[in-house]
Design a binder for these strands. Structure first.
Lengths: 125, 125
DNA sequence: TGTCTATGTTGACGCTTGTCGATACAGGTG
DNA sequence: CACCTGTATCGACAAGCGTCAACATAGACA
């Protein structure tokens, strides 16, 4: 989980968001620092519009989507842009401009880290 | 805390009994209702204090903890109570009064559902 | 009964957030 | 060049949220 270099892109503006931040929630109490880091990611998914946008990108063909493909979520265009920026700042998405359009794609390592964080302790079951 | 081995970890038993809310984020775009439901849970974990409280309960012996055991997170007692209420309303914790103390415990099915929601489809690379 | 401790509720405060319209910027096309 | 489309930023507003002190409630025990 430390360096799964599945993606050739690493010029993102989110510097530390990719690092394995925390152990599973059930393993030991979070420190204040860990909680701060992890809460930032959960908070990013804590809005319905952002969650829909993220799901639209994540489920799109090739794991990426142009803004024009996903901007029909019931809010204005500036609001869509605002939420995409938030997701990017949280390290969940990366963006790349290709000609006229901007493409967003999911950061799978972060997604995996959050998933691990939510796993119950396997406890030798 | 007499019963120490109570955590029912339902990892691969019956997936349909675990996911009342949503498919994995990568499977298909969320509907507005699904996003609303899931975002409520993510939002509950989107605060550092709540995340620490949740982690304290989840990692505590027996999967449950008295408020007095976890209330040292740097905020006042009413604030702790407020956050525990939020986690309860989000379905992440349940509470039970036993004599003088109130015990909180994690809702493992919800935790598992959130974890599944974050899983990447293994073929999506 | 009264008192003490543990926890929840209320009300108020400031800060953050989601939203929009207006505007700016980037890139393609004619 | 001018013009158009796609996307980001700005400025402002209302609503929501985290926090606390004060108070209320519940149970234990003398």
């Amino acid at each position: 989980m430390s360096n799964t270099k599945v993606l050739p892109l690493l010029e993102s503006e989110a510097p530390e968001a990719v690092a394995p931040c925390c152990p599973p929630l059930t393993e030991r109490p979070f420190t204040a620092e860990e909680a701060e880091t992890a809460a930032r990611m959960f908070k990013a998914l804590g809005d319905p519009v952002r969650l829909r946008l993220f799901s639209l990108v994540a489920s799109h063909e090739g794991g990426e989507a142009c803004v024009c493909d996903i901007s029909d979520v019931g809010v204005s265009q500036p609001t869509v842009s605002h939420h995409l920026k938030k997701l990017k700042e949280a390290g969940l998405l990366t963006s790349e401009r290709r000609g006229t359009w901007v493409y967003y794609r999911v950061e799978p390592s972060v997604l995996a880290a959050m998933g691990k964080l939510l796993t119950m302790a396997p406890a030798a079951a």
